[in-house]
Design a protein around this nucleic acid. Sequence first.
RNA 1: CGGGGUGUAGCUCAGCCCGGCUAGAGCACUAGUUUUGGGAACUAGGGGUCGGAGGUUCAAAUCCUCUCACCCCGACCA
Length: 509
Amino acid sequence: MGTDKKSQATAISPRRAEDYPEWYQQVVKAGDLAETSVVRGCMVIKPWGYGVWENIQKHLDKMIKDTGHMNAYFPLLIPLSFMEKEAAHVDGFAKECAVVTHHRLQEKDGKLIPAGELDEPFVIRPTSETIIGESFSRWVQSYRDLPLLINQWANVMRWEMRTRLFLRTAEFLWQEGHTAHATEQEAVDETFTMLNVYADLAENYLALPVIKGEKTADERFPGAERTYCIEAMMQDRKALQAGTSHYLGQNFSRAAGINFLNKEGEQECAYTTSWGVSTRLIGGVIMTHSDDDGLRLPPKIAPKHVVIIPVVPKEALQDAVFAYADAIAGELREQSFDGIPVEVVVDKRDIRGGDKSWEWIKKGIPVRIEVGPRDIESGQVVVYRRDGAPRDKKFCSREEAISTIGDTLRDMQANYLAQARAYRDEHIHRGITTWEEFERFFTPANSEKPEIHGGFVLAKWAGGEDALEKLAALKVTVRCIPFEQSETEGVCVVTGRPATQDVIFAKAY
RNA sequence: CGGGGUGUAGCUCAGCCCGGCUAGAGCACUAGUUUUGGGAACUAGGGGUCGGAGGUUCAAAUCCUCUCACCCCGACCA
């Protein structure tokens, strides 16, 4: 007979191939990462999801500090007039700003109504260039005050029309770096330094292979001179912008008045940068590594690395099994991998073992260890890896399980990166040179309910309004101009005009 | 902002077209019994102002009007 759950071969329904967007929602739910809140477009990040964010924060914060930056904190509310100072910036963000216009509530007929209208409204920060620029303008007097290297961990709000958990929410958590420099060269170097930090974080911690490159003019941050990015490929072969680093030139310093006296005694405008990554990275991790049984977390960002599941066939045996489990947990906690202490949870909840196992599979914990009376007898344990099949068990001695846990976690971390890299490389296409091939490549067979199709196309691009329109009709964008260029002559894949620049084309989140 | 749709138990939904006993199911929850080395079964139980306001009617989850919220498709998306 078998229940629905038993008869379906996977823990998540639908599977990726059946309905990718719905699969994503189900993985987030089953993994207990986050849920939509009563507040439009905002999410509640649940403990397991927040644990992932805390680990990302911990690693990135160290990298940010190791490159000479310090953390600070600026206000959530930005005076409206600040937003008006930089023309391109206003254009980019005006439509998505939440605005605070009152500072008091008054009761009237049992209802609370806003009262005390503000002379000047505030916007809730969509990003903090303008308000941080105001501080910088007072902090900087001389070239001796530069560079100014600041980072803040914060929440921001952008009133998006359509939201998806982690990938695009109205409020999200991020870090935003803001720096000011005496020379253009130094500022540009800073922009690259931080882009490299992001690529390091993505590949070596999140196990996301990324392509580093520059954004084209129409994809640039509003107000920036140049925007650099790291682009990752999800399992539906769409691109996800995983991090950005902007060279802002003197645009914002001019607007905010960040001036300094240089060595020659002349007034000069500082050169500024900004860079950020957000909780969107978690969306990228989910869509890159998860399978049809749910989340798979790279060990370096998993809130817990090992769950020990005690098997208690008879209640009389419970104390002995729990004691055995606790003892193993204690020894595992003394282990570490790549400087990260092994985090262990012993799941003593009074629910069935099968339920527990599947719950942890769906949460993506790297290693499950089962211990029961028979294992106590034989001095062994049963080990399952999340990068193996759900029932692919390995018996090993207690000592071996403990001494090899670090190697296991390191191996899994490398395995996730290798798998993601292989998938991405398989779907980067370099042979497409004509518009006909291009169009076919990006057109799903079923337009009603598009199947997983397409990928990244690495091809020549010459730009132009007509070319952008053709791309827009296909919902394809230029993701980036990769730093790695072939330096060859060719023709633009969209228009056939002569072109030298290689770019990545893809559909994107 | 345009087009479409949905609001009924914690969750997923049936009932509405064609008004009529005490508003239902599955899952989840609680208790008991039997089970237990990979998603248990049975029995009993708790849980609802049917999104809100107004109207029609002897009678409204059901019909009408207004309103609020959410979802999907577009537009928008550093």
